[in-house]
């Protein structure tokens, strides 16, 4: 069993220690992992730091679907993509960070396209709330910092 696992399957370990057994063809959709496999610097288990189990599962789901349906109609894949990226803000940003860090081009394109649609034609105020809302909430809980925030650059 272990030899077959070595040949075609890889184990990805998320930042919080959970392990996923993934076919190699799916795992190498991430350029970063592909480089590691090609350089043979990876053993069976590949650590994926900065990506927790929840997000890693989503990324693997996306890659599996894209690997399976390579021959399928492009319209089916498009429907899947649009449903896949239809998530809450926080998950969306975590996914983008993961896709960027692991270099999964298809996923990054689909996600960025989705977020771009959200900010198209929107006002500066709207974009600020959308992108920096979470940060602002943290800052606003402190009245002292509120005064500083009024003068600061939104960053």
């Amino acid at each position: 069993m272990s030899s077959s696992l070595e040949k075609n399957m890889l184990i990805l370990r998320s930042s919080d220690g959970e392990e996923f057994i993934v076919p190699e063809v799916v795992a190498v959709m991430s350029k970063a992992i592909k480089n590691m496999v090609e350089d043979e610097c990876a053993s069976n288990t590949i650590p994926v730091p900065n990506v927790d189990a929840n997000i890693l599962a989503m990324v693997i789901e996306f890659c599996k679907k894209h690997d399976e349906s390579e021959a399928e109609a492009a319209s089916d894949l498009k429907t899947f993509d649009s449903e896949f990226v239809n998530r809450g803000q926080e998950a969306l940003y975590d996914l983008i960070t993961a896709a960027n860090f692991r270099d999964v081009k298809e996923l990054l394109d689909a996600l960025c396209q989705n977020v771009a649609e959200m900010i198209k034609g929107k006002s500066v105020h709207h974009i600020r709330i959308q992108f920096l809302g979470y940060q602002l909430f943290e800052i606003l809980t402190s009245n002292f910092i509120w005064n500083i925030w009024c003068d600061r650059d939104f960053d």
Binding site: V124, I127, D155
Partner: peptide
């Protein structure tokens, strides 16, 4: 990532987002 997102918008949106934050 923000750059990649903005590249999917329009020139107008890209210019508008100049004043969102540094």
């Amino acid at each position: 990532c923000v750059s990649t997102i903005l590249s999917n918008t329009s020139p107008l949106d890209a210019c508008r987002s100049l004043s969102v934050s540094s």
